[in-house]
Structures are given as C-alpha cells and as structure tokens.
Computed example of a mutant assay.
Amino acid sequence: MKQRILVVEDEVQIATILKIELEYEGYEVLVAHTGKAGLEAALQEKLDLILLDVMLPEMNGIEVLRRIRNENTLLPIILLTARNITMDKVTGLDQGANDYITKPFEIEELLARIRSCIRQNSIAAKASKEVESILSIKDLFINLDTREVNRGDFSIALTPKEFDLLVYLLSNKNKIVTRENILINVWGYEYEGETNVIDVYIRHLRKKTEEGFSDPTIIQTVRGIGYTVREN
C-alpha cells in the first residue's frame, strides 16, 4: 500500500510540482490550498505525513498544526516556509512540527526529510505497540499478544477467564474497580449467574499469582467496594 502524503500549499504551481515529484517517488498525494481545507483533510484522511505551508489563506499553518496536534500527536508534519525567520521555526517546533524546510528548497533534501520523518514515526509506533502489549505490576508480567503470564522466572497457567480478569485489573492499575464493573467488563452485560463468581476467581488468581512469592500481594480487597492492584 502506498504511503499517503497531504500537501497543504496555497501556491498552485508549487503544490503541483510537489504532487508530481512525490507521486514519481511512489507516494499517494492529496492536495489542499487553504488552511481550513488542509485541517479538514488532516482530520478525516488516513495519512503518513503532512507537508504544511506556514502562510495559508483562511487559517495559517501554525494554527492548523496546533489543531492537528490536539487530535493526533504522532502524525509526522513538516513545515514549509518562505521566510527564513527563526521565530517561525521555533514556534512550529514548539507546536509539534517534526521538521521544517525553507523555500526555495531542493526536492532531494525534502524527500530525504520525508523519508526520515516517516521512518522515525514507524519506529516510534512499533515501540509504542510493543509497550502497550505488555502489562505489569511488581514482577508480574502479562503479554497480551501471546497471553503468557509470568512472575519472576515462573510461568503461570491461567484459564481464559482468569486471564481476562487479571488483564482487567492490571489495565486499571492503581484504581479501585467495583464488583459491578468487573462483572460488566469481564463477564459481560448479559451475565446472569451468581455474583460470588468474582470471589471465586479472585481466590484462584491469588493462589496462582501470590502464593509462594517473597512479595506476594498483588490483588488487594477494598472492603465494600471491590478490588485494586497497586505497586505499593
């Protein structure tokens, strides 16, 4: 699948040249000629990078950048500016731009910056995904992708429902979860069985994840409310 780039540039000739050059390099290119049109496309389209001119009609590039960053903190954005003024660069970077280039520029330099931004974003996204796939508390780790549970050097075998319950508790680490919320989120809205099923499964989890370890306590009871897992 082609990587998609949005060019937000009010000078039609420059926008056309950029579109031709980028398409030649294998990118799919969208073009907007005003700040408002660019913002709308940025928020609606699936994009890999934005080339954003600073001087735009209807809404300037810095304001477009600021509004995009309120919704999407990861999308790579390179500012295009005709003014070689330090304040423009500083403001843009402070508002979340990944890079900037001053017009007129060599297309090869721009292409190199585009490749660099997309590559860095890909690495960051991969790292973020890897972090999100692991839940932990103390020396207990859950791998959401492989459904493996380990405490220290020991592997812990859980039933599917025990696993789901432990994941829900760790996903709400340092928060108190009520029995009602546990039933809704782990057993589902349609569950009509005995409510003491939670006590049974909590007891099983404690036996498997706490007994025999030097710092045993993982799941804490909050009397009259529910349960919590805390680092301390």
Rank of each mutant, 00 (worst) to 15 (best):
E58S: 08
E132G: 02
K103H: 09
I225G: 01
L47K: 03
N181Y: 09
V186N: 14
E180P: 01
L52F: 15
N72Y: 03
A82G: 15
L158G: 03
I50V: 13
R119N: 11
I198G: 13
Q13C: 01
A32K: 02
L169W: 03
K89H: 09
N143S: 10
I62E: 15
V8E: 12
E132S: 14
P76L: 08
R119Q: 15
T91C: 01
E132R: 10
A124K: 15
S171M: 09
L22G: 03
S155Q: 11
Y24S: 10
L65Q: 07
N60L: 02
S155N: 06
R179W: 12
R179H: 10
H33F: 06
I184H: 15
V12H: 10
G38S: 07
P160M: 09
D164K: 13
Y227Q: 00
E108N: 13
T86N: 14
I182H: 14
G212M: 05
Y191T: 05
D94F: 14
L39K: 11
I156N: 00
L165I: 01
T221D: 08
E194M: 07
E40W: 04
V222E: 14
I225K: 15
L65D: 10
L140E: 04
E40T: 05
S116M: 14
P160L: 10
E130A: 13
L6Q: 09
F105Q: 15
I137F: 06
Q44E: 13
E9W: 11
D99A: 07
I107H: 02
M59N: 12
K207H: 05
I20W: 07
F163Q: 08
E108Q: 12
Y191I: 00
I77T: 02
M87V: 08
K89Q: 13
A37R: 01
E9T: 03
N174I: 01
D10A: 09
I219C: 04
R206F: 00
G193R: 01
A37P: 05
E211L: 00
A82F: 03
E21H: 03
N174A: 10
Q44V: 04
A32M: 02
E25T: 04
I14E: 02
L43G: 04
V229K: 04
E162Q: 13
Q220P: 00
V167P: 01
L166W: 12
T91K: 13
M1E: 14
V31C: 14
T221Q: 06
D153M: 10
V177M: 02
R151H: 03
V12C: 04
E28T: 09
Y227D: 00
A32N: 07
E21M: 11
L93W: 08
V7L: 12
V149S: 06
Y27P: 00
E21W: 01
K36A: 01
I62G: 09
T178W: 10
G152W: 07
M55D: 03
L165W: 06
I219E: 04
F154D: 00
K207A: 07
I218Y: 15
L80R: 01
L39E: 11
I182M: 08
I78C: 06
D99R: 01
S171L: 07
N174G: 10
I101V: 13
K36E: 14
N172K: 07
R147S: 07
T228H: 11
